[in-house]
Amino acid sequence: MSTENSVENTLKNAVVRLQESGSDSPSLDAAVLLCHALDKPRSFLLTWPDKLLDAEQLAQFASLLERRLGGEPVAYIVGEREFWSLPLDVAPSTLIPRPDTERLVEIALDKASDSEGDILDLGTGTGAIALALATELPNRRVWGVDLKEDARQLASSNAKKLNIPNCEFRSGSWFDPIESGTQFALIVSNPPYIEKSDPHLSQGDVRFEPLSALVAEDNGLADIKYISEVARSYLQPDGWLMFEHGYDQGIAVRDLLASLGYDQVETFKDYGNNDRVTIGLWPKKK
């Protein structure tokens, strides 16, 4: 019996093609796509390497593989990405959650442990940051805001799917959906921060992600500046503001927060040892 269409050989052939196309994770890409085509867990590939795929399964996998070979992100192809151990539905209208953003969650959790009050996530997208915080802080209320209504719907759907009841999402521009006078213990954001001429915008997965969630004016700092200024009216005394930002923006964001009156301004590294998260404390009135 021919084993050409076995799980093992199908994977091997796909990995070779993905390597040739320039994928930086060909083995993982092939495995995720084949699992999706077969509707099976990763363990199936290891347990049944000699299992033969039928014509329908082969056609389904071939279609998925061609999309990946064309550069489309795996997360968009399968409609899901794990973040903070949460399986999140994703869509082309939102950014794909990335591992480095988990640094923002870690720092937020550390600061939240010393305070009480609600938490606000601006530019929530899939709801990744808000839902990670909400699941770790079940007694705190977490709010997520996104400009796009379809992003709000996606984040709300993720909250429902994951049974996270202490998270609510609204649509609108930054603070617009938040009632005046509302104060938060913590405001977090992974806003657009890439300069529009950045060459990375034409490379890799980013080519398929929404530019509105990536690009900002003023050398990528326009949205960070706006949020920093307005957040002062929405932070409770000794409340924290924190951003994910570009690897080369740490100094600029620190200078900005300090100039606006924030205390204890500090930048943290991501897992690749790049500047990635900057925080500032809004002080009590003296």
Rank of each mutant, 00 (worst) to 15 (best):
V265Y: 02
S212Q: 13
E136H: 15
Y234T: 05
T278D: 03
V253G: 08
H36R: 09
S23R: 14
L34G: 00
A258C: 09
L241W: 07
S85I: 04
A31H: 07
T3Q: 15
E217A: 11
Q60R: 14
F169P: 08
L46K: 14
P283E: 04
D39H: 11
G204D: 14
P92I: 02
I107S: 09
I164K: 13
N5V: 11
T278S: 15
S212H: 09
L58N: 15
V253F: 03
L235F: 03
L186A: 04
P192D: 02
D205L: 12
G204T: 06
T182K: 01
P87F: 03
T278W: 05
V90Q: 07
V7P: 14
G246M: 12
R81E: 12
K148C: 03
L147K: 12
N9M: 15
V230P: 02
K111Q: 13
R98M: 10
V74Y: 02
T182N: 07
S202N: 14
E4P: 02
S156T: 12
V188M: 15
Q264W: 00
R141D: 05
A132H: 04
N190M: 05
G246Q: 13
R81M: 12
I119R: 06
A134R: 08
K12I: 07
G71W: 08
F175L: 03
L256I: 01
V277Q: 08
I194P: 06
Q57S: 14
E82C: 05
L235H: 01
G239I: 01
A155V: 00
D146A: 08
T3D: 15
N158G: 04
E217V: 02
E149S: 14
K161T: 10
L154W: 00
W48K: 15
E82D: 12
A159I: 02
D118R: 01
A185H: 01
E149K: 12
F184P: 03
Y247G: 02
Y234N: 00
A231F: 05
I279F: 03
G246T: 08
S189H: 01
N190P: 02
G144D: 02
L18Q: 12
I77R: 06
W84L: 10
S197M: 08
V78M: 08
L11K: 07
S23F: 13
A91P: 04
D121E: 00
L137F: 05
S259C: 03
C35L: 05
L11Q: 11
E195T: 00
A155Q: 05
K285I: 00
S85K: 14
V188W: 06
Y247R: 13
E82H: 10
N158P: 04
W48G: 09
L281V: 03
T47P: 09
L64T: 08
L214Q: 13
R140T: 07
G79A: 09
E66R: 15
A128C: 05
I194L: 05
D270Y: 10
G204S: 13
Q203A: 09
P191I: 04
L52M: 15
K148P: 00
E136W: 06
S189V: 00
D255F: 01
V142I: 15
S27L: 13
H245E: 11
